[in-house]
Amino acid sequence: MSERIFKMPFANVYPLYINKVEKKGRTKAEVDEVIMWLTGFTYEQLVTEIENKTDFATFFANAPQLNPAANSIKGVVCGVRVEEIEDPLMQKIRYLDKLVDELAKGKALEKILRSN
């Protein structure tokens, strides 16, 4: 299962993230902001990854720097606690899923981005 997710183009999942949050009154710009916060991508780099249909493994390998506060992302995604996921790539993917979930649930952006 993990291998299938790792090879899945990020561009296939990105519109699903946007659709999920827009149904709850949030925006594409907020999705982009949480992705850039987590990965260190600029907006232009993010667009390039999407246009290139980069798979998840390459997407995270290309990420300039995982945000140092990412390890403060806690909670359950798909029935699994993100802080207990052992595979580093799967954990990064689930971190992103958790951030999008928090956005969809109406959590304040400052809290999602772990601002002090």
Rank of each mutant, 00 (worst) to 15 (best):
K98G: 09
V77E: 11
I85A: 03
I50H: 09
G79Q: 02
G106S: 05
E49L: 12
K24I: 01
R114T: 10
E110S: 15
E51Y: 02
F59V: 00
C78I: 09
Y43N: 12
R81V: 02
G79R: 02
I5R: 06
N12T: 07
L46H: 10
G106P: 07
L66W: 01
P88C: 08
Y17H: 13
T48G: 11
L66C: 05
A70E: 11
R26W: 04
S2F: 09
N71I: 13
E102Q: 15
R26S: 06
L38F: 02
Q45R: 14
N52G: 06
L46E: 12
K111M: 08
Q91W: 04
N12Y: 03
F41D: 10
C78T: 14
I93S: 00
E30R: 04
R114H: 14
A11R: 05
P88Y: 06
P9V: 06
L89V: 08
F60K: 00
F10N: 00
L109V: 10
V21W: 00
V47L: 15
R94G: 04
V100E: 04
K28T: 13
K23D: 14
A11C: 07
P9S: 05
E84M: 09
I85D: 00
L38I: 07
K74L: 10
T42M: 08
E86C: 05
K107E: 14
D101M: 11
I50L: 15
V13Y: 02
A69L: 15
A108K: 15
I112Y: 08
L89T: 05
T42Q: 10
F10H: 03
Y14V: 02
E33S: 07
L96Q: 08
M8F: 01
E86A: 11
A57V: 03
E86F: 03
T48M: 13
G40W: 02
E30N: 07
A57G: 03
K24V: 10
A11Y: 01
E84D: 15
K74D: 10
R94F: 15
D101K: 11
E3H: 09
A29S: 10
E83I: 04
P68W: 01
K7Q: 08
M90G: 11
D32Q: 14
L113D: 08
P15E: 05
A57W: 03
T27E: 02
T39Y: 01
E51P: 01
Y14T: 01
R4C: 04
S72F: 06
E22M: 14
F56N: 11
T27K: 08
L113M: 12
D101T: 10
V76Y: 00
G40V: 05
I112Q: 12
A108G: 03
T27R: 05
L38K: 07
N71M: 08
Q45S: 08
K111T: 07
V31L: 05
E110W: 07
K107T: 15
E22C: 11
I73V: 15
E30G: 04
N62H: 14
R94P: 05
T39E: 00
K92W: 00
S72Q: 13
N19Q: 12
D97Q: 09
A69G: 02
F10A: 07
K28L: 14
